[in-house]
């Protein structure tokens, strides 16, 4: 029995995890979430922007990581549009453009009075990885001559007078990997001195903490937890807060499995000693 439990079939573990995720989604507990310092810093960076400020938002994630990153991007867009700030979307990540379309679709539902070209615009995906932030810092119009609808920037009201990167008040990147946050940190923030807010997946967050610590990044939002904290701060009713409850139970389940595994190992050791 002991050996059977110690070598528990993986499928039983998967079933336990599945149940632990589904149950809280169906029965929310309404747990309180305390925002962390790095997320609060991101929120404050957005709050400190003057009304009508231009923000460049880089959507650098794909469908697999949209669960973690879209809620924080949506909450940030909500915060910006509520304060009548303007958002120009771009993407270093190939799938980012399609997900920007999805984001804009959501914004249209939330803010039907906000207009494309006046309050937000989609500049689209640009191939070139590091070369894109490098070139956009030297010549923004040259890097993005048109938006995704082939309209020249000079004909887009919110970007009519924009020719340089420095005319943006803030750059934000919601990044799942390469290319994404690291390219913006290295070039947009470090080389061109632009204030930068980074949103990233939970797995990658530890990697970017040194940059937040050193001040190269003004704010860091990590994973679904960070997205939930951001939604709490902005008051936006998104998907992250509900997801955190499922994550809570899943974490406890995995912790329980680890404890069980250690107890079983210890019992096996005792049995071997007795023998």
């Amino acid at each position: 029995m002991l050996d059977k439990l110690a070598n528990l079939d993986r499928r039983i573990i998967y079933l336990i995890v599945l149940i632990s995720v589904i149950v809280p989604l169906l029965n929310p507990m309404g747990l309180k979430i305390e925002p962390s310092e790095s997320v609060a810093a991101s929120f404050q960076t957005y709050e400190d922007l003057p009304e009508g400020a231009l923000v460049l938002m880089s959507i650098d994630y794909g469908p697999s990581t949209a669960v973690e990153l879209e809620p924080m991007a949506l909450a940030a867009c909500d915060q910006l549009l509520r304060h009548n700030q303007k958002v120009a979307f771009m993407a270093l990540y190939p799938e980012g453009q399609a997900l920007t379309n999805r984001l804009i679709g959501r914004l249209k539902e939330l803010y039907p009075d906000k207009k494309y070209g006046i309050d937000y615009v989609n500049l689209g995906y640009k191939a070139g990885n590091e070369a894109v932030p490098l070139k956009m810092g030297l010549d923004f119009r040259g890097q993005f001559p048109t938006d995704t609808r082939d309209k020249p920037l000079s004909e887009i009201p919110m970007l009519r007078s924009v020719t340089q990167l420095k005319q943006f008040a803030l750059v934000a990147t919601y990044s799942a990997g390469f290319p994404g946050a690291l390219e913006h940190i290295r070039i947009t923030a470090s080389e061109y001195g632009m204030p930068l807010v980074v949103g990233t997946t939970a797995v990658q967050t530890p990697q970017y903490f040194p940059y937040y610590d050193s001040g190269q990044v003004k704010g860091l939002i990590g994973g679904l937890r960070g997205a939930a904290e951001y939604e709490i701060l902005t008051g936006f009713k998104g998907a992250a807060v509900g997801g955190m409850e499922a994550q809570s139970i899943a974490h406890f389940t995995i912790a329980g499995l680890i404890i069980l595994s250690n107890i079983l190992t210890f019992l096996q050791f005792l049995r071997k000693e007795e023998q």
Binding site: K32, I33, M244, E245, S248, I249, H251, F252, A255, I258
Partner: peptide, 15 residues
Amino acid sequence: TAFIVMIFRVPLGEY
């Protein structure tokens, strides 16, 4: 360390 971060980084653990 994994235990502490896993349990206390989620709302239920903080609660």
